[in-house]
Design a protein around this nucleic acid. Sequence first.
RNA 1: GGGCUCGUAGCUCAGCAUGGAUAGAGCGGCAGCCUCCUAAGCUGUAGGUCGGGGGUUCAAAUCCCCUCGGGCCCGCCA
Length: 631
Amino acid sequence: MPFKALKKEVRELIGKALNELGYPTVDFLVQEPPSLEFGELSSNIAFEIAKKMKRNPYEIASNIASKIMSFEKKLIKEVLVAQPGYLNFRVDKCKYFKTTIHHLLDKPGYSDIGKGKRVIVEHTSVNPNKALHIGHLRNVVIGDVIYRLLKYTNHEVIVLNYIDDSGAQVADIIVGFKFLGFPENPPKPNIKFDQYCGDYVYVKVNQIYSQDPRTENYRKIVLKELENPESEIYKFARNIIEKVLIEQLKTCSELNAYYDCLNFESHIIFSNTWKKIFEQLREKNLISYASEGKNAGCWVYKDESGQEKVIIRSDGTATYIAKDILYAAWKLGLVEDFFNYEKFFVQKNGKVLWRTTLSEGEKDHPTFNNAELAINVIDIRQAWLQSIISEILRKFVGKESDKKYIHLGYEVVSLSRDTAKEIGVEVGDKEFVHMSGRSGMYINADIVLEKLYKLSYDETKKRNPEADEKWLNEVAHSIAVSALRYSLIRQDLGKILVFDLKEALKLEGDTGPYLQYTYARAYNIIEKYGKLPKKVETFDKLVEDEEYILLIELSKISDKIEEATTKLQPNKIAEYAHKLCLYFNTFYEKHQVIHEKDESKREQRILLVYSFTKALKTLMELLGIEAHKRI
RNA sequence: GGGCUCGUAGCUCAGCAUGGAUAGAGCGGCAGCCUCCUAAGCUGUAGGUCGGGGGUUCAAAUCCCCUCGGGCCCGCCA
């Protein structure tokens, strides 16, 4: 972790200097200056002391600098003072490059921030009545990258996918099949079952509801029946849901996202464990009985801003948030494990996918709950409800416990004007349009992937006319996935992602394929050279600006991974990987590696390129993007 | 009505937590670069009232207040 070591050294040097100079101890920052011209690190310490002592910051900085110059230093070479009082530090390049390259050749960017901590990441959780659209994919990709980050930083991670098998959306397609005469099988056999249910049955049923509101009664009937596991409707629905799920999960595995267990909502409801936790909530005074007002007769939770949420209705039944609280408590191991489990199938990555079941299940199963931290990837529209759940859980576990329930919210994906128009949506004067599953206004995930695949296939074939079909398919698919995943992860979670099909089909610039291309380009150098130099102990020949800039950036890899993980900002990884590639390509265009005449310079460059490929591959793996030797 | 959130180049976005040194990328535009490791690349160039106003500060895209514009949430439904 070269950059961190550097920061630490700077802090120590400053601290020691303050001590010897008799300056007061104050808080100060060690940060990256706006440009490498000023050095690799800089500090505002002189401003802070100047404020306190009412003295000139430049003078203070000069004193500290000359003091530090008299100390023995490890990675730091010199300290400079800049107006109006910055303290700028420069590394000993030779030493620092060696540290950095050795780090990258070993375990690039690794840092044990997890220490084996058990974390649940729940994502996807798409209603099992439709195919995934591009909005769902944002959830899948965010969740999956968070999983990968946590895993890499030594957390014990469990990935769950919550299946809402008893809600209105599932009920709607069951209404279609059971009451409105929709055929159980798609009219054409080549239509995916999830697409048939979502694009056709679900949309049409909702159209029928709005034309003839009396038909909505069917939904009520179905919802009621879904509460009874013995009912014919429940058994029928179970079968339909399973078929949809299998198709949905195919889409996810195409995108390299996998799960440990599927947790069915109905199995929480049937577990009848709610009463136990309800008693505890009442004992801890977390919920209260409303004797008057609009919620009279209900048990309610009052949130920190004083808003009330009904937990138990006046007729004694639990609202859906009650079930969410119970489920959250299960995740953190605060209630007994009320699920039974069985194996569902083996996923493409070889991992067994489990699911909860109403039957006895298998005794010998992994533990899926009992986490220290539960991260729930859910779009931002659920923010208020999720904050209530977090609040209740926080109070429930008490201050001394570290157990935590987190809602990782992200903004929705909407359609750009052009793309909305393309699928026949009325846009008016809006800049973008929200998708709606119910009204059929969305872009299907499989279709985008297919389009991307065709594009990448043509492009790859053009570049590799001799290549065989198998390889072409594999690479084209991988490029399509990388383009899609990257476009969904590169943006801050708090911003609406305006999806534009034309934009998404780009394979150049700030995209996943750019990373893959750069990787292949770099790897090609190593392959052409055919061997790795042994035992290079000094990197004194890496004197070019482009090498320096690349190496300094590379040295920050652990810091970036750590930051992305602890702040749950997966977009940081995409941004960093892109920046590294920009720097590498600049270097690549300007300097030769295998044609370099000076042998030791050539070997040092080979190692630089090799360590770059190691770093980039690590980042790509975190993003769920495959690195190919050739594309 | 209450609450949350976004607004930075023509477009898509970084930077805001912890105020600091010339506000950064990509796309698109324009002008260039393949007898040399993959041109899915690179170089140069044009393009900015950081939504607006006020305040705090030696210093504000960043903090505070107001305001305008977009989006979302606020049922004993799920």
